[in-house]
Simulated scan of single mutants.
Amino acid sequence: MKLTAFLSARGGSAGTAGIIGAGFSRRDIDVALAACTIIRIRRGHHSLAKEATDYRAALELRGLLTCLSAAPTYGLWTLVPGQDLHLCVGHRSAPAGAVSHGRCRHPGQPWLPVAGLADVLVHAVHCLPELQALVMIQCAVGRGDISLEFVRSQLGGNRNGRARSVLELVIPRADSLLEVLANVAFQRAGLSLRRHVEIPGVGEVDFLIEECLVVETDGGSHLEPHQVKKDRRRNNASVAGGYLVLRFGYDDVVHHPERMVAEVLAVLEQRHKGAFHP
């Protein structure tokens, strides 16, 4: 493996110890530096010459990526891409344009300048809007990367009341961030619902509201031709089985939840008035 390929597989940068530990020599490093395929960020750390990643910025600033900036490393769900650099820099002040977070209490990522997952999530619930933090935590907990109880244990005391309230919105299972957000919207509207309900002839549906209305939340994969055909068959089977059906996409759930809830309430109101009865 070439040194450039090794760095590319590790986010574009690495420490000298990590490079040598992977089997490269100091001469390999010197040759790459002379050829300008890599550069020395600072003593003991090197990066691809054309790589301007958050990892490189964190190494240059002697900090660890955390919160929204660390989400891509751990593959966490996010609602919006990070615009600012979120960093743990110890007791030092963060540079202009970066968001400074408290010190890290847990081991960081082994070979990248990234805070540990527990610190990333704790920083997120203190820093981000409620729903943005929620989807990150739901993703990590749902995959089994960390337990909800452990995250809660890191948020003791009166000052963490708001942060703990975000944890109360985590559900046992969510197949997408759309399910998480829709669940919050429906619950706050006072709707009676069940999640992941198995309906004969249809299969499992995302939500069954008031025992009569099937609600599905459709991500990008539902726009693929084979999935469109499958969803059409499921819709027909639901209606044939006596259920009403509504489907909502990313834009509905993420950007217009009030409109989504209003449509659900309108259908339920029409049903209560007998609109769907013979």
Rank of each mutant, 00 (worst) to 15 (best):
R92D: 04
A94W: 10
A94K: 07
A94E: 06
P95K: 02
A96T: 09
G97M: 14
S100G: 15
S100H: 13
H101K: 10
H101Y: 12
H101G: 09
G102M: 02
R103S: 15
R103E: 12
R105A: 11
P107K: 07
G108S: 07
Q109E: 14
L112E: 03
L112Q: 06
P113N: 00
V114C: 03
G116L: 02
G116N: 02
L117P: 06
A118E: 11
A118K: 12
D119E: 00
V120T: 03
L121Q: 00
L121W: 05
H123G: 00
H123K: 00
A124F: 06
V125I: 11
V125S: 06
H126C: 08
P129I: 03
P129A: 01
E130H: 13
A133K: 06
V135N: 04
V135D: 05
M136R: 05
I137W: 10
Q138V: 02
A140P: 08
G142K: 08
G142I: 03
G142N: 09
R143A: 15
F150Y: 12
F150D: 11
F150G: 04
F150M: 06
G156D: 07
G157W: 09
N160F: 13
G161Q: 10
G161T: 10
R162L: 03
R164M: 04
V166T: 09
L167W: 11
E168G: 08
E168M: 06
L169P: 02
V170M: 01
V170I: 01
V170G: 01
I171Y: 05
P172G: 02
A174N: 04
D175S: 07
S176W: 04
L177F: 13
L177I: 02
L177D: 06
L178R: 03
L178Q: 04
V180P: 12
V180A: 01
L181Q: 11
L181G: 08
L181I: 15
A182V: 03
N183D: 14
N183G: 08
A185K: 07
F186A: 01
F186Y: 15
F186C: 03
R188M: 05
A189T: 09
G190Y: 12
G190Q: 06
G190D: 07
L191S: 14
L193T: 06
L193Q: 11
R195A: 06
E198A: 02
E198L: 10
I199A: 00
G201H: 15
V202N: 02
V202I: 00
G203P: 10
G203K: 09
E204L: 01
E204P: 02
V205N: 03
D206L: 02
D206C: 03
E210M: 13
E210C: 12
C212K: 14
C212F: 12
C212L: 14
L213D: 10
V214F: 11
V215M: 13
V215K: 09
V215F: 14
E216T: 05
E216W: 04
T217C: 13
D218C: 04
D218S: 05
G220R: 14
S221F: 13
S221D: 15
L223W: 13
E224M: 13
H226M: 05
H226A: 09
K229T: 09
K230G: 13
